[in-house]
C-alpha cells in the first residue's frame, strides 16, 4: 500500500519534466523542426533566396530517375563494404588478442589504436593527398624506389583505386573505435564460462568460436548497424581528398552537399536526404532481420 502511494507521489511530481525539458526543447528546435522542415522542403523548389514553391513529388521523381544519385549509392556501398569488412575483422582480432592475459601493455595498445579517430578528417584528407599524389606522392616514390612500378600510379585517376584509398582511410580511422566496443563486450562475458571450457579441455580456438563469438553477437550486431548508419553517410574524407576519376568518390552525402551548397537546389537536396534515410532504414532492417532469423535458428537447434 505504502509502495503504491510512493509510486503515485513520484508520478505526480512534475519537477522531473522541467529537468529533462532543456534537452527536449533543444531537440525540438534543432532536431525535430529541421527534420520536419526538410521533409516539407523536399516537396518544393527552393534556391535559398526566394520562398519555396510547392512542386509535389517532382523532386522524388527526379531523384528516382537520376543516374548520378544511383551512382553515388553504388560509390557509397563500394567504399563502405571495402572498408567495413577489414575494419571489423581487424577490430575483432585486436580486441581478442588484447583481451588475452599474456599481452602486456594492453592499455597503451588500445590508446594507440584509437588515435586515428582523433585526427580530423581535414588532416586525413590532406595527408591522403600528399601520400597518393600522382607525381610527387610518397607512396609512388616508395613503389618506384622498390622497383614495384616503373611509372607513378595515378591513384585518383582510377575509379576503383580511389575508392580503395578512401576505404582504407576509413578503415584506419575507425577500427580503433570498434576495437574498444568489442573489448567492452568481451569484458562483459563471465570468466566462469572460459574456466569451465578450459576444464573441459577446450583450446583457445574452440573457446573463441564456441563461447566468445556467440556471446559477442549482440555487440557485433550493434557495430554492424552503427557502421551501416555511419558508412552510408561517408562525407568528410572523400570531400577533402577531392574528386576522383568518374566521380567515383562522390558518395551520397557528397552528392547531397554539392546539390545543396554548390547548386543551391535545397528542395532536391532535401529529397536526397530522405532517399538516404530510406536506404539506411532498409539496410538497418535487413541486418536486424538477418540477426533475428539466425537467433531463431540457433534457438530451434
Amino acid at each position: 500500500m505504502r509502495k503504491t502511494k510512493r509510486i503515485k507521489s513520484l508520478k505526480k511530481s512534475r519537477f522531473g519534466y522541467f529537468f529533462i525539458a532543456p534537452y527536449f526543447i533543444v531537440f525540438l528546435i534543432f532536431g525535430l523542426y529541421p527534420i520536419i522542415y526538410s521533409f516539407y522542403t523536399s516537396f518544393s523548389k527552393w534556391d535559398g533566396f526566394s520562398p519555396p514553391v510547392f512542386i509535389g513529388l517532382d523532386n522524388y521523381q527526379r531523384l528516382f530517375t537520376n543516374l548520378e544519385f544511383y551512382h553515388s549509392i553504388l560509390n557509397t556501398l563500394i567504399i563502405w563494404i571495402v572498408s567495413i569488412v577489414p575494419e571489423l575483422i581487424i577490430a575483432l582480432l585486436l580486441a581478442l588478442i588484447l583481451n588475452e592475459r599474456f599481452v602486456k601493455g594492453k592499455h597503451v595498445f588500445r590508446a594507440v589504436f584509437y588515435f586515428p579517430n582523433i585526427v580530423t578528417a581535414i588532416t586525413i584528407g590532406v595527408l591522403v593527398n600528399l601520400m597518393f599524389d600522382w607525381q610527387t606522392g610518397s607512396i609512388n616514390k616508395l613503389l618506384m624506389a622498390l622497383h614495384i612500378t616503373d611509372h607513378p600510379i595515378n591513384w585518383f585517376g582510377h575509379s576503383f583505386l580511389a575508392q580503395i584509398i578512401i576505404s582504407a582511410v576509413m578503415c584506419w580511422q575507425w577500427f580503433g573505435v570498434n576495437m574498444l566496443i568489442f573489448t567492452a563486450g568481451l569484458q562483459s562475458i563471465p570468466r566462469t564460462l572460459y574456466e569451465a571450457a578450459e576444464v573441459d579441455g577446450a583450446n583457445r580456438f574452440q573457446i573463441t568460436m564456441n563461447i566468445t563469438l556467440p556471446l559477442l553477437k549482440p555487440v557485433i550486431l550493434f557495430t554492424v548497424i552503427t557502421s551501416i548508419i555511419g558508412g552510408m553517410q561517408i562525407f568528410e574524407v572523400p570531400l577533402v581528398a577531392g574528386n576522383a576519376s568518374g566521380d567515383s568518390t562522390q558518395t551520397m552525402m557528397v552528392y547531397l552537399y554539392n546539390t545543396a551548397f554548390t547548386r543551391f537546389q535545397y528542395g532536391y537536396a532535401s529529397s536526397i536526404s530522405y532517399g538516404m534515410f530510406i536506404i539506411i532504414l532498409i539496410f538497418s532492417i535487413i541486418s536486424l532481420l538477418v540477426s533475428r532469423s539466425r537467433k531463431k535458428n540457433t534457438q530451434s537447434v
Binding site: 590532406v126 593527398n129 600528399l130 599524389d133 600522382w134 607525381q135 610527387t136 606522392g137
Partner: peptide
C-alpha cells in the same frame, strides 16, 4: 606538362622548388 594537379601538395612543392632541374 608535368601532370601536377593545380593547387595539390605536389604542385605547391614544385612551385617552391627553384632547382633548374625541378619538375
Amino acid at each position: 606538362d608535368a601532370k601536377l594537379a593545380g593547387s595539390s601538395p605536389g604542385w605547391g612543392s614544385a612551385l617552391n622548388n627553384y632547382d633548374p632541374a625541378g619538375k
